[in-house]
Design a protein around this nucleic acid. Structure first.
Lengths: 172, 172
DNA sequence: TATTGTTATACTCTATAACTATA
DNA sequence: TATAGTTATAGAGTATAACAATA
């Protein structure tokens, strides 16, 4: 208890002071957890293939779906179109992603992995999955469905909160 | 299913191809969740007080403990000493944090909130706590202990993995 | 007019190492 | 020699807006 709170208690002030305990604060805990997990995982693809998180997401998305437009990649990997655009450009320069025009809508293009891109994907995906498995291994199997539900709810709720704040600048 | 997998199935290849589903991949889900939560929360202190996440953590840590050295702040808020140093410097310039020399060890100093800093803390902490409460509200009460345990385990495990990788560069 | 995607800009954030002062 | 903290540097990542092409 810090000085001020000790004083409050001593003085018998009825309003309990609010103490925010960082180590129990959910946003902080989520942030630390996600950062550490991301850091550990990124060693796999950053050190091996010299690509960052956005490029990794594009690679994995194309590995999962085969062919996609930039917009679709952005939706599926929750990335802004500029981030997708730059990641795709980098992967194209490395000959890991190929582009094919959509004749029905020339604004967009169909993106897919090249054979080299698929090779990396086939090599990296099992390692990443194994990493994910090892990670989940430390969570009690009985707790896993709850974790799954909680992450879903928290993600939806914070996305909604962010959207609300963006729409209503007065709340800031 | 993408082209290659369809081919594999058609050819009757026995080795099932590994498909990494981003939306089910725990590291990705944690990252998206934490980013959205952090984004929503930071509106509270970034827009109100013009400070970033590191400064916020220092403020909250000092609000919680009253007096601390830079090193202690770093440990408690999982921040590197350079990040702590710069955050403290910024908060000092804004007269929100004060520094008092430790006569027993002149390398470090005792840091604490100024009255102005405490005022901001008293104003912001309840808002942050309310935010955290609203967030947790969407999680089924029955799922909360599991979420708590899971986050703890995942954080410990990934910290350990990162430490292992840092020690053993051959694994990269 | 709206949408897809790219580019430019400026800004913030980060990691690392080098350094100072003290122990 | 080791530790607490600061500063320098460079690189990475970010957000925003402006833009071009197409619908």
């Amino acid at each position: 208890m810090n000085k001020e709170n000790a004083e409050r208690v001593q003085a018998g002030t009825d309003a309990e002071p609010v103490i925010l305990k960082l180590e129990e604060f959910l946003p902080y805990r989520l942030n630390v957890c996600a950062t550490l997990v991301s850091q550990a995982l990124s060693r796999i693809y950053i050190d091996r293939y010299r690509i960052g998180v956005p490029e990794w997401r594009v690679l994995v998305t194309l590995g999962q779906y085969g062919v996609m437009t930039g917009k679709q990649i952005g939706i599926h990997s929750t990335m802004h179109k500029t981030k997708v655009s730059r990641s795709v450009a980098l992967l194209e320069r490395r000959k890991l992603v190929a582009r094919r025009a959509n004749r029905n809508d020339l604004r967009e293009a169909f993106l897919s992995l090249t054979p080299a891109g698929e090779e990396i994907y086939r090599e990296a995906a099992p390692i990443a999955l194994e990493f994910g498995r090892q990670l989940l291994d430390v969570v009690d199997p009985a707790d896993r469905p709850a974790l799954d539900r909680a992450l879903k709810r928290l993600t939806d709720r914070s996305a909604q909160l962010t959207a609300d704040l963006a729409k209503d600048p007065a709340h800031r």
